[in-house]
C-alpha cells in the first residue's frame, strides 16, 4: 500500500471529464473540496460531508461515489466524471432534458449528485422498475421536489433508451 506523508502535498494526476489533469493535494483533502476549489468544477455540491445526502456524487471509473468520502489522492490514476461532463456538444443530454421537462429540480443543489447516480444506475439497469428507481434514489436527499418529478424523469429516460416501456409501467 502506498504511504503518503500527511503534512505534504502530493501530485494527483487523473482523467477529469475526459481530460488529463494534475493537481496537488494533502492526503486529508477531500475529493469534493479538490474538485470544487482546485479543479474549479463547482457543479459538484457538498451538503453533509458524511455520505448521507448524496449531493457530491461523482463517477470514479464509472461507479457512482461520494466525493465527500473520498480523498483526493485516491483518484490518482483514475477516471473521474462530474455533472459538467453530461451535456454533449453543449446540448443537455436526455437525462438532463427529462429532468427539466418533469420539474425534477427546484433549487438544484442536490441535482448534480442525482444525475451522476442515475448515469451509473441506468448503465447497469437499462430497464428498471419504478421501485428500483426509488430504491436507487434513497441514496439522495432532495428537500424541494418531493421526488415525483425525479422519478418520472428517470423512468421516462429508461424507457426511451431501452426503446420500450418498463416492465412495470406504472407512472407515479
Amino acid at each position: 500500500m502506498k504511504r503518503l506523508d500527511a503534512g505534504r502535498s502530493h501530485p494527483v494526476t487523473f482523467r477529469l471529464n475526459g481530460r488529463e489533469r494534475t493537481g496537488h493535494a494533502e492526503p486529508r483533502l477531500l475529493l469534493s473540496d479538490f474538485l470544487r476549489h482546485d479543479m474549479g468544477l463547482t457543479g459538484t455540491h457538498v451538503g453533509c460531508e458524511h455520505g448521507v445526502c448524496g449531493a457530491c456524487t461523482v463517477l470514479i471509473d464509472g461507479h457512482a461515489c461520494r466525493a465527500c468520502l473520498t480523498l483526493a489522492v485516491q483518484v490518482d490514476g483514475r477516471d473521474v466524471e462530474t455533472v459538467e461532463n453530461l451535456a454533449e456538444d453543449g446540448v443537455l443530454n436526455d437525462l438532463q432534458q427529462a429532468f427539466r421537462r418533469h420539474h425534477a429540480l427546484q433549487c438544484g443543489f442536490c441535482t448534480a449528485g442525482i444525475l451522476m447516480s442515475c448515469t451509473d444506475f441506468l448503465a447497469r439497469n437499462p430497464r428498471p422498475r419504478e421501485a428500483d428507481v426509488r430504491d436507487m434514489l434513497t441514496g439522495h436527499l432532495c428537500r424541494c421536489t418531493g421526488y415525483t418529478g425525479i422519478v418520472r424523469a428517470i423512468v421516462e429516460v429508461a424507457e426511451q433508451r431501452s426503446g420500450s416501456t418498463t416492465e412495470e409501467n406504472e407512472h407515479v
Partner: peptide
C-alpha cells in the same frame, strides 16, 4: 412551462454562494 433556471442548474453551472 419549463423553467428558465434549469438549463444552468442541470449543467452544474449554478452560482451558489460557495461558488
Amino acid at each position: 412551462q419549463t423553467r428558465l433556471e434549469d438549463d444552468a442548474l442541470l449543467r452544474g453551472l449554478g452560482q451558489y454562494a460557495d461558488d
